[in-house]
Write a protein that binds this DNA or RNA. Structure first.
Lengths: 355, 355
DNA sequence: CAGTCCCCCGGAAGCGCTTCCAACGCCGCG
DNA sequence: CGCGGCGTTGGAAGCGCTTCCGGGGGACTG
């Protein structure tokens, strides 16, 4: 609108950050762009003096390589895709934070893909190779089948899983069985024997044994010489509403449990709402324990088994870096398991007199 | 390993999805790559029939342009950066979900940047021009100064804000003042007069008037012929711990409030923990109201003012698309304000007898 | 002292896409 | 019926960088 017209060429050089190219640097250092590239890229066969000269020229001119050109010419993209089922859930957000920190430090960009269900996941994998926009894929608490994994691997895309683990590729997670035992054993120690379980529906959750937390419940009960009663386990969505719903089913039993083990804190919180509405006191009438140590667990005095979620994201990021930097992945994909710990708060106590 | 050797050219077309280039599409459609580019890029001067043919070929071959090449040649990158302070907080996760959905539908990638404080933000903006890897930047509940905005604009990067708004660029958010009034007026209607406020510390939060929620509290009280008492407002971090801490300060007052308005649900929940520990009942002894309608608010029966967070993300995405597609932004940056609504639950009630 | 290796470095060919420029054929008007 | 013109399309030149390939010295060896 003002005199600020198109200005075909002319003042191009004046424009704020008109790009300094590798050629500029090369010219300035008195070498060819090929040499400049090698010097800057820490390649061998470049005289130390030359390298220094190029470096200085680059610094002087405030040179920054164009990522596009670099990548076009064959370099890595510097991007990693992250597949997330529910970005708004604390667990995933936390994982993302850890991942982002690690990736950012290595100058890698995190491209987020929301992948809700199997079909969406499929769609993602179908397109990804074509757009080959990333060097690696991090899958959060989500399964990837062998076929998909093989496909990516053959395309040179590294895959890492976080928040769970699978045999075929590197992963970080917790020992679900162990975490489950920590929770259930705690209840058992308190004297509970009739322990209900709010199991998370296996959307497409990763896990060593497909059902570590649930199996822990069974094992713990058996170890306590109590036969697990399948009526006491209800499978519901991994959220508050799921927990609330599950709890009311549990309350509908002829012999309701005296304690409940929820697979995650949100579910536990949902269960507590149902209990409150039913006029039952926690923990006097019924104990509740979850897994995660969600920040709100602290606020609601929920006893839980804490897992280092952000750290899992961070470790996953480190795995990506290792694999990216250090050639091919090791024969046996590492499966890190981070420790969990029982956090005692106010929602568990010894059982009252049975009715 | 098998007979699946290098295969220089030959079966190229057969290989799963080894890069399909624009030339492939062009050849398939029987046109030149120049025409193919124009057809795909919605440029004028392309016969409709040709355009269709190219599109079909592209779809058939599952073609996806290489962002690097596109960008290198001067086109857009197809990527938008999202600056988020705390990815693990529900509010931001929700914003991201909405944004992702909208962006994904338009074939744009969402590159996530965690930006905790002003210095990190500065670092981001300082580097961006160099790596200029994105077409747009979406800033979540975060301020960007005029300088930074101008810089991006001159680089052709569009900026959009979500979860708040600022005069200088397009934004989506809620009317903070109005939301605050809804909350405080509710308390007033119930008969409360001594109303405390847990104000969120202004990290670098966006807002129309820098402090809509707080000013609403003042205005509402004045309208109710009650002089706001500054002792009743404490400013704390936007999280549960902040709320808990703030609440205990409020309880330390000689004349504690009979109701508390928290700037967000997490803070409200934190306040409730403090109250519980203090042996105070909610809402009998003290009422609590928040803002957000966090999923856990429903679980804890927290009365709150709901805001459509995911929708804000979606709208922000739409704004990005509009601006990207449709030339320069309008003279007056739009500032959408989405509606909020009071959600009555169990943490508010008329005040008891004052001590 | 000559031969040979190795080091370093420059030339040049792309990577996949956009866009300027020119050419083509068609339509419509005079 | 012929010519100008416009809508379409192809050719080609890069965008900035990496890397293969080959040549020229200098140092070292026989």
């Amino acid at each position: 609108m003002t005199g600020d017209t198109t200005d075909p060429q002319g003042t191009a050089a004046l424009r704020p950050s008109s790009r300094v190219t590798l050629d500029d640097v090369a010219r300035h250092a008195g070498v060819s762009s090929a040499t400049a590239s090698r010097a800057l890229g820490d390649h061998p066969h470049v005289a130390e003096a030359t390298r220094r000269r190029v470096r200085e020229a680059a610094a002087l001119l405030d040179y920054v390589a164009s990522p596009e050109a670099t990548r076009l010419a064959g370099g890595p993209t510097g991007r990693v895709a992250v597949l997330v089922p529910h970005p708004s859930r604390w667990f995933f957000g936390e994982l993302i934070e850890g991942l982002e920190a690690e990736l950012r430090a290595a100058e890698l960009d995190l491209v987020l893909f929301r992948v809700g269900g199997p079909e969406e996941r499929h769609a993602f994998f179908a397109r990804l190779p074509a757009r080959r926009g990333v060097d690696a894929v991090v899958v959060l608490a989500f399964a990837v089948d062998e076929v998909e994994h093989a496909r990516l691997a053959s395309l040179g895309v590294v895959v890492v899983a976080a928040g769970g683990r699978v045999a075929s590729y590197p992963s970080v997670g917790i020992d679900d069985h162990r975490a489950g035992r920590q929770a259930v054993d705690h209840l058992l120690h308190l004297g509970h024997r009739r322990i209900g379980m709010l199991a998370g529906g296996d959307e497409q959750r990763l896990s060593p044994d497909p059902d570590g937390r649930a199996s822990a419940w069974r094992a713990a009960l058996r170890d306590a010489a109590t036969e697990p009663d399948d009526d006491l386990v209800v499978t519901v969505p991994w959220d508050g509403e799921g927990g609330a719903e599950g709890m009311s089913r549990l309350l509908g039993l002829r012999a309701p449990p005296t304690a409940v083990f929820a697979h995650c804190d949100e579910m536990a919180l949902g269960a507590m709402r149902t209990l409150r509405r039913a006029g039952l006191r926690v923990p006097e009438d019924i104990s509740v324990i979850g897994i995660d140590d969600h920040p709100l667990a602290a606020l609601t005095d929920l006893t839980t088994v804490a897992q280092p979620v952000r750290e899992q994201g961070r470790r996953a990021g480190a795995m990506v870096l290792d694999t990216l930097r250090g050639g091919p992945p090791p024969r046996v994909p590492p499966a890190e398991m981070l420790p969990t710990r029982l956090v005692l708060r106010g929602t568990t106590s010894p059982p009252g007199v049975p009715r």
